[in-house]
Amino acid sequence: MQEFDFVVPKTLAEACQMLSDGYGRPVAGCTDVLPQMRHGKLKTERLVDLSRIKSLAYIEHSNGRISIGALTTYEQMVTDRQLHDYAPVLAQAAATVGCRQTRNRGTLGGNLGNASPAGDTLPPLLILNAQVVLAGSSGERRMAVSDLLLAPGKTALLPDEIITSVGFEALPRGMRSLFLKLGNRQGMAVSVASVALALQLDGGGPVQDVRIALGAVAPTAIRCPEAEKFLIGQQIDPITAGAAGRLAAQACAPIDDVRASAAYRRHAIQVLVKRGLLSLSNDGDSHADN
């Protein structure tokens, strides 16, 4: 592996300072960065290890708003009871990441900063309309997750900025959510296609609110406004769910790679969206596998 400096800030301010010259890269769990560096896909002069900034690992709930520190691990999200109550889709997604060894290390901030199209927490964050809080040498700013993610491996972060937390409103009472993931194997699966859905029906009837986001089928995780708009006011049945699936498939821009072809990814999205909608409208029974 290449040589680099390793620095360990104790505070956020220190961390921003260490990144301010643009030659550094923040890391925490290292589950993505180290393999990339070993392959020479990522080069840096300095790793700034955020993992000692204890104040960044938390899951808080107050007044219907959830705030998750950037250093919160997948495993912490899996086991957090508040998250299961207020944003189960995110906990479900976290549970599908890698294996226990990687879930114990990988962090929510890392999943965002890494900006992989296949990052499993990203579609849930999109349907939660989550905002990230960024700290930089010139202060703090907020940004929607959808604005943060620009392209594979590329975010709107400035070089000296750090993701400190992610915040979102708890899903409204009665809104059910679900994460569906398709991988090429059951264990340690990387998403070939994934879907995060949230659905609120008007008294068990027509759709009052629906949110759909897709993973691994476009340069970034994306929302599907066309499918969502189409569904408002509709009854969910195999026909409308199928139509929404097709709209979602149209919204994606997948690539052919060794994991799957673009055509199959598109097909899978259509199936997953349809299936997710039907499942949520039937019983709200949510399960992360498919």
Partner: peptide, 8 residues
């Protein structure tokens, strides 16, 4: 439980 290869 961690993979020690992914910890510096």
């Amino acid at each position: 439980l961690v993979n020690s290869c992914l910890v510096l």
